[in-house]
């Protein structure tokens, strides 16, 4: 027993009303609910309304509003859990990577012959930051205009909005990276902060890439 287009749309609208407006999640949740309903209608010989009510009741815990400190916003539980895992993994990656890069800079660049090229290194870092700023700005606009919403696009827009100001300020030299500061603690914090912003921005660009990757997959499906 296959559901009609109207019945599928009814499930779709219910999911949207419950805050599940992101296609990468909505596609699989809708399909799971629809398949369960079809099976119930077949096996229990009940109507769509009865089957839908029973299946939806089973799914209610997944739609319950849930907050995660890593994301900073409240969403249906199933979405919060997915986003939390993505952001937590990225946060840990950013900390480890930026710390390692900072140590490389301080051990091999500072007080070495490479220190002679410090001005060039700082210009390169600023150009890299400006490039990232440009890419994030373009990705932001493209995701905002996108026909589809995904959890990746949602996270990218929410999390990168705050970082863009700092990227611009770093890029135009308002926050110089003090690699050769006499106090090694200040040098460490300065370089680590810069590395963290660069790495985190790279992660947000990866989120944008995953958004476009999913949109491409869904767009290839003939209507």
């Amino acid at each position: 027993m296959k559901l009609t287009t109207e019945q599928i749309d009814c499930i779709n609208q219910t999911l949207i009303a419950k805050g599940l407006n992101f296609d990468d999640l909505k596609v699989e949740v809708l399909d799971h609910i629809a398949t369960e309903i079809e099976e119930k209608m077949q096996n229990a010989n009940c109507t769509f309304d009865v089957a839908f009510k029973e299946v939806l009741e089973k799914w209610e815990p997944e739609f319950k509003p849930s907050f995660s400190g890593f994301i900073g916003f409240t969403n249906p539980r199933i979405m919060t859990v997915k986003c939390h895992k993505i952001v937590k993994r990225q946060f840990l990656t950013a900390i480890v990577t930026s710390t390692l890069l900072t140590l490389v800079f301080l051990l091999f660049v500072r007080n070495s012959s490479l220190g002679l090229f410090l001005a060039d290194i700082q210009v390169t870092l600023r150009l890299l930051v400006l490039l990232e700023f440009g890419l994030v700005a373009v990705a932001w606009i493209l995701i905002w205009r996108s026909k589809h919403q995904t959890t990746y696009g949602y996270l990218m827009k929410k999390k990168s909005a705050g970082i863009m100001i700092f990227l611009l300020m770093m890029g135009i030299g308002l926050f110089p990276v003090k690699i050769n500061h006499p106090d090694v603690k200040i040098a460490f914090v300065s370089v680590c902060a810069a590395m963290a912003y660069i790495v985190i921005t790279g992660i947000y660009l990866k989120l944008a890439y995953k958004h476009f990757e999913f949109v491409k997959k869904i767009s290839l499906v003939k209507p």
């Binding site: 559901l3 599928i8 399909d31 997915k82 993994r89 499906v221």
Partner: peptide
């Protein structure tokens, strides 16, 4: 679904979308 999403985030799983009946 949390398990599937975690495995996808780790690069262990990939996804494909297909049209089935009147849904994706």
């Amino acid at each position: 679904y949390p398990a599937l999403h975690k495995l996808e985030a780790e690069g262990i799983l990939d996804v494909e979308i297909e049209k089935v009946d009147n849904r994706m």
